[in-house]
């Protein structure tokens, strides 16, 4: 078994914590998230050839007034950046985050277009431009669980390559 640190980042309210809650059963209280800006969970994923334990760092959402603590990205093997399909501005913020990440690390980055249970993924050019910057893009729903498992499995495969 190998361990990997992965981070999940996104603008405030895009549904990062909900995605993790959908995926793992949290052990730590979520108050850590508001206290120090991060909450950590773990999940064991069984790939075909090996087992990978993800230490998932749920980093507090960013907004126009604050960015995330980039120190939390140290040693991260992969990142999921979450955007809200009902809020187009969240895709711009995802682009910004991706730039911040890429400045520090050359690691697999997945875009999770969340809340697809509410509306469909927009098809405008700006969005297309954004999605092309990512290694993988998933339409997800924390509510229904759509593509959540598959997205993390993809991330595990990518970080182990």
């Amino acid at each position: 078994m190998i361990q990997k640190k992965v981070a999940i980042i996104g603008a405030t309210g895009v549904g990062k914590t909900s995605l993790i809650r959908q995926y793992v059963e949290g052990i730590f209280s979520e108050k850590y998230l508001t206290s120090i800006g991060v909450k950590i969970d773990k999940k064991l994923i069984e790939l075909e050839s090996k087992k990978v334990q993800f230490m998932i760092w749920d980093i507090e959402g960013i907004d126009q007034f604050s960015s995330f603590n980039t120190k939390y990205l140290r040693g991260t093997s992969g990142v999921i950046i979450v955007a809200d399909v009902t809020r187009s501005s969240s895709f711009n913020e995802a682009s910004t985050i991706l730039l911040d990440v890429k400045k520090q690390l050359d690691i697999p980055c997945i875009l999770a277009c969340n809340k697809t249970d509410l509306t469909e993924l927009p098809t405008d050019d700006t969005l297309k431009e954004t999605t092309e910057k990512f290694n993988f893009v998933y339409e997800t729903s924390a509510k229904t669980g759509k593509n959540v498992e598959a997205m993390f499995y993809q991330l595990a495969t990518a970080v182990c390559e």
């Binding site: 052990i27 730590f28 850590y32 773990k42």
Partner: peptide, 12 residues
């Protein structure tokens, strides 16, 4: 492992 990660986060 969770304690380690949290401690690192707190340290950061």
């Amino acid at each position: 492992d969770l304690v380690s990660a949290m401690l690192t986060a707190i340290n950061d």
